[in-house]
Design a protein around this nucleic acid. Structure first.
Lengths: 202, 202, 202, 202
DNA sequence: AATGAATGAGGCTTCATTCAT
DNA sequence: CATGAATGAAGCCTCATTCAT
């Protein structure tokens, strides 16, 4: 009754609430059913609003989907930025350093499952996002090669791509299945990638 | 082994030709556009037949999609069986043996790109197929552990899952992009998985 | 008594108008052409709306057909209930009492020709509806037998079934053809069923 | 091998067999499912022939349906003719005479259930056929009125129509349900129509 | 006498989106 | 801010029927 309409004809408090709600429900349904099998009608039904209301906040089905992708991209970007900063502080050993970074990615996926599913698995942008991710990993690896930690005769682009593939698949089969924690996964795969399977290494 | 699909109609040589043509075109379009964005109307147009003809050979859009998935499953299954047999013949070293097996999988993906895209990336069965694949890999790994070649303190289910993820992603980004051959990829990742990135091993 | 159909959408006055219009036109066309030869496209054309509008109010062609059947069932049920109550008030003679009841049924058919055609002649439920009707008539006859008015050595189930058949057929050939009124028909057949054709009775 | 092809390019022995078979199966399916829900494809499948074969013998779906109707009409016609002749031989009493006639109709329906279902219940001609039947009954009744057996103040067209309705409905609910025999039914309804339900008559 | 293959025509239904209020 | 009502566009599928052999 005494609500403040702050933004003139723009979306106010209630609208923002509806918008967020729709976005949240859309994320859930897209993650669950995929793009095509998610129906605007189903989203608005769960949100208890009508279809035109949906179009008040989103230009189209594609638009809300893209918005969720962008949301994921942003989170991923933030995370990666953060990684960069912390990676400067080399208080820990090589393995621990890498493991921590990987763990943070898993954590991101864990805390944003729906949006990650959309951005990383369902969207057309997924390929590009993963490529981007691989590129960053590759750069990091290159540093370690320069530092003399890693072999120099390995195709880093393949290794980076492999790491992305591993993260991708373990997220799906182990993390989201609730079978492993981000830490467990990152520990395990870091060791694997650093030392390999062969016994004689130990 | 391969059951003949019982059809209401009898189908002769010409019909089989039409059927194969439709199947081939469908594979192409499904691989290209995904399930929903592939229209029966587009398939039949490319095949130069009318829509009812499609339903002469396939019960529904879902049915033809599933048939392609099953086709991929069958090829994969055959390949894996073959792997098992050859893995017994240990004329070569460990690395070469594993590399060969992985290479064969990449070759399968290379030679059946469309159907692999459908079965391995687009279908709902994909998860299950990959899980199956992971399970087989895990079993193979277990043998090597028993033989004393591999570490015993590694979670093999994670390693297997990781390998599947690597194959999956490299297929998409390197193999199908035409950047690497099956042999190159398998060599590289086998070395990676066996010896790891760390230099001191050498 | 009459349950409100739970619909996903809210429907206001205008919508209800469209719905009623569609229902009315559908009744007309179903009655005229039967289920299969009535096309949704024709219904909506006559209603001056587009096809999707139809599906705004009815789940399917089957559904609207069934709704009309149920509508008929409800009317028939109400009528029969009413018959029961009035049959208690024996202010008039036996013949008049029965004739009135039968007349009311004819009136129902006259006033709801389309829906009656659907429910009583075109639907699969028709058999069941008639059986139900026959059962009720049989019960009424049984009372008269107990009261000593009617022969006791007659198979009442046959008589009841016969009465239904008579009503059914006379409705079609005399009532709906506009050749006879409900009263004329009921008078005539009541006398026939009570006293028979033989002259010597008089 | 030594088959005689009597009719040149016309249908020979085998063809005649196919034709009869198709007709028989069509009758069954039409009776069971109605016109629209009977598919040519289903008929030929059950007959173990192909669809073009069907069109070798019948011009269209409508044509074979009509042929079955005509077949029923013919049987009914024959029966009625026969009735006329026997009705001349008045060796028995009035009741018995009428009962016999009605019984013969029920027998016809019993022995030709499928074709009767089609001609008497499913076809558009049904109305006309029944009207025809009613007319004949009315004529017979008129004779009895002239002979002084029946009331003269009864609308015979209504009575005739009523009798048709009774036969129609009892056939469906009692005869084809296997609950009553032609004789039982005809006895019962003849008595009903002649003497009525009222007790005082006896 | 019969078949394998194919099609013209058309029906039902769904869905994202918009209009008017 | 939100709704009731409606629609354009299009997709899947079915069926009676025919062509060429």
């Amino acid at each position: 009754m005494f609500e403040l309409k702050k933004r003139g004809r723009q979306i106010g408090a209630d609208g923002e609430k509806s918008r967020e709600l729709l976005l949240k429900i859309a994320a859930k349904q897209f993650a669950l059913y995929g793009f095509h099998d998610t129906k605007i009608s189903a989203i608005v039904k769960e949100a208890n609003v009508t279809q035109p209301t949906f179009y008040l906040y989103f230009k189209s089905k594609e638009a809300i989907f893209q918005e969720l992708i962008d949301l994921f991209k942003a989170k991923l970007h933030t995370q990666v930025e953060h990684s960069r900063l912390t990676s400067g502080i080399e208080t820990t050993g090589l393995l621990q350093r890498i493991a921590t970074n990987i763990s943070l990615i898993f954590q991101l996926f864990q805390e944003n499952e729906q949006v990650a599913r959309i951005g990383f698995f369902l969207s057309t942008d997924a390929i590009e996002i993963k490529e981007q991710m691989a590129k960053q990993i590759e750069e990091n690896l290159a540093v370690e090669v320069e530092n003399g930690y890693f072999h120099s005769n390995i195709d880093l682009s393949i290794v980076a791509s492999a790491i992305v593939g591993v993260i991708e698949h373990l997220t799906l089969t182990k993390l989201w299945a609730g079978l492993k924690t981000p830490d467990e996964l990152s520990q395990e795969i870091t060791r694997l990638f650093l030392y390999g399977l062969i016994r004689e290494n130990e």
